[in-house]
Design a protein around this nucleic acid. Structure first.
Lengths: 110, 110
DNA sequence: CTCTTCAGAAACCGATCGGTTACACGTAAA
DNA sequence: TTTACGTGTAACCGATCGGTTTCTGAAGAG
């Protein structure tokens, strides 16, 4: 089934792979050098990342270079956007009040 | 094992539960009313969300109200922060160049 | 041509996931 | 006190996950 970005980043190993690919292209062996697990295991993670578009592969001869497509993480950022208010301390008290859930207008709260 | 926030939001049902709890408190039955699955299934999802701190429970008599703690999503936002450049179109070409991976230039920084 | 390297696939395994039904316990209502 | 409600847990199930070892095919090196 089709992968989604949220499932892709759920695994810490895959997040680390993305961190590596944010600043460089690497082959599978290049990625595997940073981890203490087998190459097929890394290959599986990269496949998952590829399936949801977070990584693309450029083949050069027998080597396949993984390119991070971190722009795809915008999907996660978009989902988070409405909740930035919960930790964004730049909002002042008035703005916080204005953003209060509309359900509060009909009834009181603890 | 201890849950982490990334694993918690990997599941679309749990993301929907969080969306509901962003603007209101609901009991388990209140949450379940929005879904087409059994209550124990919803209960399991809420347990996962509680284990990683995304939801807290306030008990009032026999009813247990779920409170979203969306501030906890800051962990995801923090992880995403370095990659905002990949979709943040406000950066112009020069700034993009300056942010190029340090492997290309030795280093430079704003 | 042969050998080496790169890396995907297959098979396997234990663990976990995400749903179900049935049951049990604590609290509220009658 | 009894009944009803709210909801967590147990047991179950099929599917998936995340790792391993082994095998295989394609491409590069000698």
């Amino acid at each position: 089934m089709r992968r989604d970005v949220f499932q892709a980043i759920a695994d810490p190993t895959r997040r680390q792979i993305l961190e590596l690919l944010a600043s460089q292209q690497l082959t599978l062996n290049g990625v595997a050098a940073y981890f203490d697990m087998s190459r097929p295991a890394i290959s599986k993670h990269i496949r998952i990342l590829t399936e949801c578009g977070l990584v693309t592969i450029q083949q050069q001869g027998r080597e396949r270079y993984c390119q991070g497509e971190l722009n795809k993480l915008k999907e996660v950022a978009d989902w988070l956007k409405p909740y930035q208010q919960f930790w964004n301390t730049k909002l002042d008290a008035l703005e916080k009040f204005l953003y209060a859930p509309e359900t509060k207008k009909g009834r009181s709260k603890k």
